[in-house]
Simulated assay, not measured.
Amino acid sequence: MMSNLFSTFDPSSSILNIPLNWLSTLLGIMFFPFALWAMPSRWILVWSSIMKTLHKEFKILLGPQKAKGTILFVSLFSLIVFNNSLGLLPYVFTSTSHLTMTLSLALPLWISFMVFGWVNHTQHMLAHLVPMSTPGPLMPFMVVIEMVSNLIRPGTLAVRLAANMIAGHLLLTLLGDTGPSLSASLLSILVISQILLLLLESAVAVIQSYVFAVLSTLYASEVN
């Protein structure tokens, strides 16, 4: 029996005291050679269609002048969705359920956006601190509120992704641990509920990847 419920997320696999769990982050690379086939499969065609759709949407968010930057956010979406999806497989470590991973993605992006914006578009960044039609007496308070909301952006990005991954995995673990103590009739209900929950988690894995990429794109568009 687990002494700690969250021990299922501990990176414990190792060889010669070298942790191997974080290597699961690179498992998505094994899908890329399939894109080089002379005759692509249906899955590759579907994935290419998704990438083209995301490219068009991110291009609209960034604007035509920053269209080349969409490759960064499409790649970010691919990395997160692969890690989220592979984490649903048995014995595969879910790196995106740790703040170490999600903050490593969100914080450098946010810092680069802020540095670029304040260095190259200082007046534009200052104008963002005071929304239009704000009454004069409320302007100092609005500046403080906007600054706080801007500072917590990388934290909200990281916590949102990690919390959603942890919540689904914990629920799957809790339901799975009750299996040995159930009768045959209840066990069939548990299996069905686990399958439905796994389908839900598969959708959450894609949705959270999309939300992370879209919000990052919106934050980038604000510094133009």
Rank of each mutant, 00 (worst) to 15 (best):
T96Q: 05
V115N: 02
P108D: 10
N120I: 05
I111D: 03
V115F: 11
V119Q: 11
G87T: 06
L105T: 04
S85E: 00
T122A: 09
L99H: 07
M125Q: 15
M125C: 11
L129F: 06
S95N: 11
G117A: 13
A106L: 10
V119S: 12
F116N: 05
T94A: 05
L86M: 12
F116V: 02
H128R: 14
L89P: 08
L88C: 03
L109Y: 10
T102M: 07
A106H: 13
N120P: 00
L103M: 15
N84E: 10
L129P: 06
I111E: 02
W110K: 03
F93H: 14
Q123I: 07
L107Q: 06
H98G: 02
T102N: 08
T102L: 09
S85F: 07
F113S: 03
T122E: 08
L126S: 05
V115I: 15
L99I: 12
N120G: 01
N84Q: 04
S112N: 07
L105P: 09
T100R: 07
A106G: 11
H128M: 10
S104C: 11
S85Q: 01
P90V: 01
W110T: 05
M101Q: 05
I111Q: 09
F116I: 01
A106S: 14
H124G: 00
S97P: 00
V92K: 12
S95M: 02
W118P: 00
V130I: 15
W118R: 05
N84Y: 01
P108T: 09
S97G: 04
P90D: 04
L129N: 06
L129T: 09
L86H: 04
W110V: 07
M101R: 02
T94H: 10
T122M: 06
L109A: 11
F93M: 11
H121T: 05
G87W: 07
H98N: 09
G87F: 05
H121E: 08
L86W: 07
L109Q: 13
F113T: 05
H121V: 01
H124C: 04
N84P: 01
F116G: 00
L107I: 14
P131Y: 08
T96C: 05
H98Y: 01
H124R: 15
A127M: 12
V130D: 01
V115T: 11
S95R: 00
H124E: 12
L105W: 12
Q123T: 14
M125N: 02
V130E: 04
S97T: 09
S112D: 03
V115A: 12
L103A: 09
A106I: 12
